[in-house]
């Protein structure tokens, strides 16, 4: 009986339009975030990744005002912030974190302003919640092509930067004498990072996209001996968390009638749970 209930829910799940869009866009976002996240964690840029996502919310909220596609807004602002951090560039980790924080503060200030305009000029009262915490089931079907295109581009760029990024992570001097343009490669990576976070900001929200970026990657890095394996584990976990989260959120409409549970909550819970579990285990291949 429980099984037949489950099957009927599953049947409805697959046929639901918003669910199909969420599965496609969310899957793309999870995959890109996991791959980019491995390098982000390796390079010690978790804060920068989080900051770009937060700042991208200014673009997300502006796109509501200007009638742009949300993804375009999210990405434009994230790329702008990436450029700002690069222009203010600092070598020392503490100074770099400070610059990241300053850019983050200024960007969030803009988010505050744009959301205020959103709420006063239009009737979109839910703007703050949807931009900051995601709107997985409210994605426009038209975004699927664009989102998957951006995802494919980001994955291709990550593959291209794979070896230079690893060599730089090993030792920047070694990379320099081998002719790698360390700063240019670093900036290219941050732009790819901006693509990744804008995709996940659109799905699970700007301030929560860090979960998809950092969590699966951190698990992969804990478990794997090789970079390729770490990326594969991260990608698998990211997809599992996102698709699992979408399914549970869909199902939750039956748990507490009237109040579905948010997708973002499930995604985060699965990821952090997996991270806690990997802390208990040793390394695999």
């Amino acid at each position: 009986m429980v099984l037949s209930d489950f099957l009927s829910v599953l049947a409805g799940f697959w046929q639901n339009g918003p669910v199909q869009v969420a599965l496609a866009v969310g899957g793309g976002a999870a995959l890109v975030s996991a791959v980019v996240g491995v390098f982000t964690v390796l390079r010690g840029q978790a804060f920068a990744g989080h900051a770009l996502a937060d700042v991208s919310s200014a673009g997300g909220s502006a796109s509501l005002l200007l009638g742009l596609r949300p993804l375009v807004g999210f990405f434009a602002m994230a790329a702008l912030a990436a450029g700002g951090m690069e222009a203010l560039g600092a070598r020392a980790v503490r100074e770099r974190d400070l610059v990241t924080g300053i850019v983050l503060g200024a960007g969030l200030g803009l988010t505050a302003l744009f959301l205020y305009f959103d709420m006063t000029s239009t009737a979109t009262t839910g703007a703050a919640v949807s931009v900051m915490f995601g709107s997985m089931f409210a994605l426009a079907p038209g975004t699927v092509t664009l989102a998957l295109g951006v995802a494919a581009l980001a994955l291709a760029a990550s593959a291209a930067l794979y070896r230079p990024l690893l060599l730089i992570a090993l030792d920047p001097d070694l990379a320099t004498i081998r002719g790698v343009r360390v700063r240019a490669v670093g900036f290219a990576h941050v732009v790819v990072l901006a693509m990744a976070v804008s995709l996940s900001a659109m799905t699970i929200g700007a301030i929560l996209s860090t979960a998809l970026l950092i969590g699966p990657a951190a698990c992969g890095l804990r478990l794997a001996r090789r970079t390729g394996t770490a990326i594969a584990i991260a990608a698998g976990l990211g997809l599992l968390a996102t698709w699992g989260g979408i399914f549970l959120a869909y199902d939750s409409f039956y748990w507490t009638p009237g109040h579905g549970w948010p997708v973002s909550f499930f995604v985060v819970a699965i990821i952090v749970g997996a991270y806690a579990l990997t802390g208990l285990r040793g390394r695999a291949g």
Partner: peptide, 14 residues
């Protein structure tokens, strides 16, 4: 892998 990076770590691509 570290030794492999010594060979071609500066190249683009996987």
């Amino acid at each position: 892998d570290v030794v492999g990076l010594g060979l071609d770590g500066h190249r683009f691509g996987i």
